[in-house]
Simulated scan of single mutants.
Amino acid sequence: MIFAKLVALLEHEHAQFRIIDHPAEGRSDLVAAIRGTAPGQGAKAMLCKSKHDDGTLILAILPGDKKLDFKKVAAAVDIRKATLASPDEAQRETGCAIGAIPPFTFSPHIRLVVDAELVEQFQEIAFNAGRLDKSIVLNSSDYLRIARPLLTSLCV
């Protein structure tokens, strides 16, 4: 469902993208090799939440070869502490399994925050598109135009 919704959105917005079918893979480094893209070009999506149960959800997007700094996530959305959502929470909130979450949010309850390095360093980003066996490679400027994320530093 998310895959079809995402493709429809990109087509509607006249984005420059291509779809890659591949064996199911959730690890950033392995899927980059399958796609033929650089590991850092992969848009790794991590659903985070406020550690203080105020209901804040954050979809943090970072280069596939980097590690997330939870203090930077918290600072970006003005909460005290951020932590990773559980796999069950991620599935419920995004409609996707861990590893298949695209760098878009279709929920008004999830704030989208992107590490600026991802879109500044690469003309295209690559990501699993709601499924572990389908990826999309998308023009970075189209991504920014359509997703309208908060850009900041999120990595260690």
Rank of each mutant, 00 (worst) to 15 (best):
R80I: 12
V156G: 12
G36D: 06
D53V: 08
C48G: 10
L84H: 12
K67S: 13
I101R: 07
D142W: 03
K5T: 15
E117H: 13
P63R: 06
V156I: 13
C48W: 05
A75R: 12
I58D: 07
N128T: 01
I98K: 03
T94K: 01
S86E: 04
A45N: 11
H109I: 05
C155R: 10
L112N: 04
F106Y: 01
F127D: 04
F70V: 12
V137Q: 02
G95Y: 00
D21N: 14
A97Y: 06
I79A: 07
N139E: 13
T105G: 03
M46W: 08
H52M: 11
G99R: 05
P149G: 08
F70D: 02
V137Y: 06
I146L: 07
A4W: 09
R35N: 09
A33Q: 15
A43W: 01
R145Q: 07
A85E: 01
G55P: 05
F106D: 00
V77L: 05
I2C: 02
H52A: 12
I34R: 14
F122L: 02
P103F: 06
T37V: 15
S28A: 15
H14D: 13
P149R: 05
M46D: 02
L151F: 10
I79R: 04
H22C: 08
F106M: 01
I34S: 13
F17D: 00
V31T: 14
I98Y: 06
D78L: 11
R148E: 14
R18M: 12
G64L: 08
I34T: 12
Q121Y: 09
G130L: 05
S153F: 08
G130K: 03
P103I: 05
G95L: 04
H22Q: 03
I146F: 08
G40C: 10
A60G: 07
L10Q: 00
L154A: 04
P102D: 02
L6E: 02
F70S: 11
S50L: 09
A32P: 08
R80E: 15
A8Q: 14
L151D: 08
K81D: 09
Q16V: 13
R131I: 09
Q123F: 11
M46N: 14
A32R: 01
S153W: 12
D53L: 12
I34E: 14
S153Y: 12
G64Q: 03
A100C: 09
G130T: 06
I19E: 11
I58M: 08
E124H: 13
D53Q: 14
A8E: 14
I98W: 06
Q41G: 01
